[in-house]
Amino acid sequence: MSSITKPLIVTRKLERNALGLTRLDYEGEMSTLCAGCGHDAITAGIVQAFFDLALPPHRAVKLSGIGCSSKTTAYLVSQGHGLNAVHGRMPAVASGANAANRSLTYVGISGDGDSLSIGLGQLCHAIRRNVNMLYVLENNGVYGLTKGQFSASTDVGSKSKRGASNQEGPIDPVLLALSLGATFVARGFSGDKEQLVPLLMAGLQHQGFAFVDVLSPCVTFNDHEGSTKSYTFIRKSRQEAAGFVPYQAEIATQYGAGSVQPITMHDGTVLYLRKIDEDYDPTDRAGAFSYVSERQAKGEIVTGLLHIKQDGGDMHDRERTVATPLRDLSFDELCPGTAGLDRLMDEYL
């Protein structure tokens, strides 16, 4: 994965967050993706979410697989450790890293090839494990690095740049995650930062596997007429079901009472859910599934926070691991010593 070191641009006055850090402290190396790539906007969104939540950057763990999307972990939060796993296998590495140390902030970034084809099984089982992490699927419906093949999220009839029409049915990441019992399912669009950043922030705060499918057009191979993952097509078809209100102060003035629902996150912070469709209930998994699929049948792409379940219990809750990160346990806490071995040996006489 190539990258270029960013030139330092000095601006006069930078906004600082609760830790006294500026947005620059959350950035990474210069992106080498194509100009206008949706992924770069998502990178900026994650940087913004980290900054707004004032997360300590060195406590971030960034994991990815292989592909254009997976390159982006180098383009954000350079003070955190990063790992580019083998293709499609990031969820397993994230599970293991998280098992070893539950105290860090985990961000996994993947794409539709990485997550829905070669790594579909790994994604499914990380969802089942409810690993505490933000999992961003940068979804452009195309293989970019290998120059434009259809992916598993390409819609039937969607056309390639050379005019071929896709015949195989797509895997919808949101419906997949809902059917697997994911505890946080959202869909955003790289072209709508106002909607995306609060979704990413909520995902970072969610205790469990926060799955965010982000439609992210590929400007080089999949932004033409006939593609269902182009900027034009997504803008035209997008419907918001429910989203988060980014700033608490705006609630009272901007939205009418009743359309805003407070949700208390695991760490005690309160996020305000803004429901566009009054009947939509993101805590109802079955309802979410049918809402998304019904709209999909009408050619609409539902975005926003689609499902949240707060009492799911993450991997550590289920495994009942101790509060201290396992990797920080001392040898004496782990080795039973001579006394333990002697007692045990007596049972094998």
Partner: peptide, 27 residues
């Protein structure tokens, strides 16, 4: 509560990935 974590993976490939992730993390 447990001073260990045993994860039954979906296949050996994932099991290896979990082990690599944990080893990288220092466990």
């Amino acid at each position: 509560s447990r001073r260990y974590s045993i994860l039954q993976a979906e296949d050996e490939l994932a099991a290896a990935g979990i082990v690599v992730g944990a080893g990288w993390m220092g466990a």
